Lab assay of single mutants.
Amino acid sequence: MATGGRRGAAAAPLLVAVAALLLGAAGHLYPGEVCPGMDIRNNLTRLHELENCSVIEGHLQILLMFKTRPEDFRDLSFPKLIMITDYLLLFRVYGLESLKDLFPNLTVIRGSRLFFNYALVIFEMVHLKELGLYNLMNITRGSVRIEKNNELCYLATIDWSRILDSVEDNYIVLNKDDNEECGDICPGTAKGKTNCPATVINGQFVERCWTHSHCQKVCPTICKSHGCTAEGLCCHSECLGNCSQPDDPTKCVACRNFYLDGRCVETCPPPYYHFQDWRCVNFSFCQDLHHKCKNSRRQGCHQYVIHNNKCIPECPSGYTMNSSNLLCTPCLGPCPKVCHLLEGEKTIDSVTSAQELRGCTVINGSLIINIRGGNNLAAELEANLGLIEEISGYLKIRRSYALVSLSFFRKLRLIRGETLEIGNYSFYALDNQNLRQLWDWSKHNLTITQGKLFFHYNPKLCLSEIHKMEEVSGTKGRQERNDIALKTNGDQASCENELLKFSYIRTSFDKI
């Protein structure tokens, strides 16, 4: 039985969820670079991206490699990797027998973001014989899940209580170790020597080791999670996991709180800001991140802002960003909400898709409305799209047979046209069989910064309504002859009103 693990408890099935942008060198404390989270699957090609990484700022997932063999891993080693800020997950990587050479110096898994409450997941690794993470000293947050690894031993010899604050939620089941077939031998045991430290858990006094050649490092209890030197002297209180010299914040392997210019500090002093819960960055760093993602459509890219001495992905609820200094300031009234469309555009074809934009005031991208039916549609669209004030790209209304009016965009005031449909149009209306009105132009103002209007096959939309939009939106004169079809717009509506004058002759039985 794995020490510190839980057996036999019912657990939810383990679901495996399925960018080499360097964020800056980590400095003297770390020998390499800070790398983003990685999802490495199918083959070993991307694994080489770990070569210079000291910190993975995010998670590391290595999974679904069915053609790899043990010899493929023999020359692979990433000794610079010290810390993973989120979680480490391995799933069905064939041929991998140990992690001792792959990650010989991995010391800390912070667990800032977890995989279903777990910071370390080893699942269905069919050839893994031992973990071998002999320098792993601290899992700051989260638990361990090690399950269905039929060859995995050296679990009962690990004292997880020396690595985690609590072992109650560890789930370590259905491994070879369960069948008591392992016969784990710690260093020196074969020669009758006791080389590794022994600890007591559940009444068992057991030597602690990761492999037959690597003991588990056990520091004096007084050192807590700070770690200790090879001689057993406690590291500085700002260290986490390990250090090369005692009581020196510049000799830590990793930091308990924050890293700044080669030393570990309790908090980031001005003019620095907390970033990702582990390091200090200056304003320029946060500003660069903001600008890199301002026009990016890459998933996970955030326009970072500053709030409460932190550089964070977005302002919290009730705050909006001051564009001059990136500071989050309290909103006066309802907060603006910028919604970034991942692929640059979004099609609204149902109430469900409209709900995804609920509360958005600025759309960074283009909207395509293609709704053919739905219950209580006008009210639903207004509830979900009615706060949109600005669209950076274009607005396209296409084959939306259920629409009679666009009044559900009740606050839309600006279409920038930074991206144009077919390279020309910022407003595009095609084949809307029941569209009769755009907006009530006596109450609604709309500016279209650039781009043209396109109207074709809107049989109940009168040309007068379209011409009014040209005047109000500032697009009059931009359109070419064929942009607004004269014969297919309003051709099934009563669009022309003329005053009919009647004269009559009164007659009676005795007068003409």
Results as ranks from 00 to 15, higher is better:
residue 151 E to Y: 12
residue 232 G to C: 15
residue 95 G to A: 13
residue 274 H to A: 10
residue 49 E to T: 09
residue 236 H to G: 05
residue 325 N to Q: 11
residue 131 L to T: 12
residue 159 D to A: 05
residue 273 Y to R: 05
residue 52 N to I: 02
residue 241 G to C: 04
residue 60 L to T: 01
residue 171 Y to F: 06
residue 175 N to M: 05
residue 112 S to F: 08
residue 142 G to R: 01
residue 30 Y to A: 15
residue 66 F to L: 13
residue 275 F to K: 02
residue 108 V to A: 14
residue 295 N to C: 10
residue 139 I to R: 01
residue 206 V to G: 12
residue 79 P to N: 04
residue 41 R to P: 00
residue 205 F to K: 14
residue 243 C to E: 00
residue 82 I to W: 12
residue 78 F to P: 01
residue 94 Y to T: 13
residue 216 Q to F: 07
residue 261 D to F: 03
residue 213 S to D: 06
residue 298 R to Y: 04
residue 66 F to Q: 08
residue 52 N to G: 13
residue 164 L to A: 10
residue 318 G to Q: 08
residue 29 L to T: 11
residue 142 G to D: 02
residue 229 T to E: 04
residue 203 G to R: 11
residue 218 V to M: 05
residue 240 L to M: 05
residue 53 C to F: 00
residue 77 S to V: 04
residue 68 T to S: 12
residue 53 C to G: 00
residue 287 Q to A: 12
residue 40 I to F: 14
residue 282 N to R: 13
residue 178 D to Q: 08
residue 105 N to G: 04
residue 188 G to W: 15
residue 53 C to H: 00
residue 269 P to L: 03
residue 160 W to E: 00
residue 335 C to W: 15
residue 250 T to H: 08
residue 110 R to P: 00
residue 119 A to P: 00
residue 163 I to D: 00
residue 68 T to Q: 13
residue 195 N to P: 11
residue 178 D to H: 12
residue 169 D to W: 06
residue 96 L to W: 02
residue 280 C to L: 00
residue 42 N to D: 06
residue 152 L to T: 02
residue 325 N to A: 15
residue 154 Y to S: 11
residue 303 Q to H: 13
residue 185 I to Q: 11
residue 336 P to C: 06
residue 154 Y to I: 05
residue 62 I to H: 01
residue 109 I to P: 00
residue 233 L to K: 13
residue 242 N to L: 12
residue 212 H to V: 08
residue 127 H to D: 07
residue 69 R to I: 12
residue 274 H to V: 09
residue 232 G to L: 04
residue 186 C to I: 04
residue 32 G to A: 09
residue 28 H to Q: 06
residue 106 L to D: 00
residue 101 D to L: 15
residue 110 R to G: 11
residue 117 N to S: 09
residue 124 E to G: 04
residue 180 E to G: 04
residue 71 E to L: 11
residue 160 W to M: 11
residue 91 F to V: 03
residue 162 R to M: 09
residue 258 F to V: 12
residue 241 G to W: 02
residue 104 P to N: 01
residue 116 F to R: 08
residue 290 H to C: 01
residue 141 R to L: 08
residue 74 R to H: 15
residue 44 L to Q: 05
residue 270 P to E: 07
residue 302 H to F: 08
residue 79 P to H: 04
residue 33 E to S: 08
residue 199 T to P: 06
residue 327 L to R: 10
residue 286 C to D: 05
residue 261 D to P: 05
residue 107 T to W: 03
residue 265 V to Q: 14
residue 305 V to Q: 06
residue 165 D to H: 05
residue 302 H to S: 11
residue 210 W to N: 07
residue 125 M to K: 00
residue 104 P to S: 01
residue 252 C to V: 00
residue 162 R to P: 10
residue 109 I to T: 00
residue 58 G to F: 00
residue 180 E to Q: 09
residue 45 T to W: 15
residue 165 D to C: 04
residue 296 S to N: 15
residue 60 L to K: 01
residue 279 R to A: 12
residue 134 Y to W: 14
residue 44 L to A: 11
residue 107 T to D: 01
residue 79 P to S: 06
residue 214 H to E: 07
residue 321 M to L: 05
residue 44 L to K: 06
residue 63 L to S: 14
residue 159 D to L: 05
residue 183 G to T: 08
residue 55 V to F: 03
residue 142 G to Y: 04
residue 170 N to V: 09
residue 156 A to H: 08
residue 210 W to Y: 04
residue 163 I to E: 00
residue 124 E to C: 07
residue 252 C to P: 03
